[in-house]
Amino acid sequence: MAFEEFAAHRLPALLRYAVLLTGDRELARDLVQEVLTKALVRWRRIERLDDPYAYVRAMTTNAYLSILRRRRLPTVALTYEALDGPRAPAAPDPVVALHDRAELWQRLTGLPRKQRAVLVLRYYEGLTDNEIAEVLHCRPSSVRAFAARGLATLRAGLVHEGRTP
């Protein structure tokens, strides 16, 4: 498969995955751009793999987990509400049930990185715990622990004041 063909078919999916990981549209684009460039440099090796997308997705995950830079100074919020504007229900509001998309998004983006990566890989990408363990270079038991902690955090917010969905 040519790199251009891969990009045409898989780039949108990678961007969707990255925005779930990062919670930030600009950062997601930066991250995928960086990964895409590296993948192109290594493409002759990657294209021989059974599943090039899985490999590039793992590159994206690892790049996300090892973000060291913060090139932008904190200035303007880029939240789910900011991105979606008035169409989005506002962030936590006592008069609105907590299963708002905005609320869940906020809680998801507030999770520690590995917990969030595990939840996104499991519930968005549909990977098994063993497959996630390979991506994250950890044991399946660790994956289960990360998932349990992440879900517990999400549930803790949703159950608050009895407003379970």
Binding site: L11, L15, Y17, V19, Y80, Y124
Partner: peptide
């Protein structure tokens, strides 16, 4: 997550 991803993903 699917809805978030569809709504928020940047353009390629």
């Amino acid at each position: 997550m699917t809805e978030f991803a569809d709504d928020l993903a940047p353009s390629p």
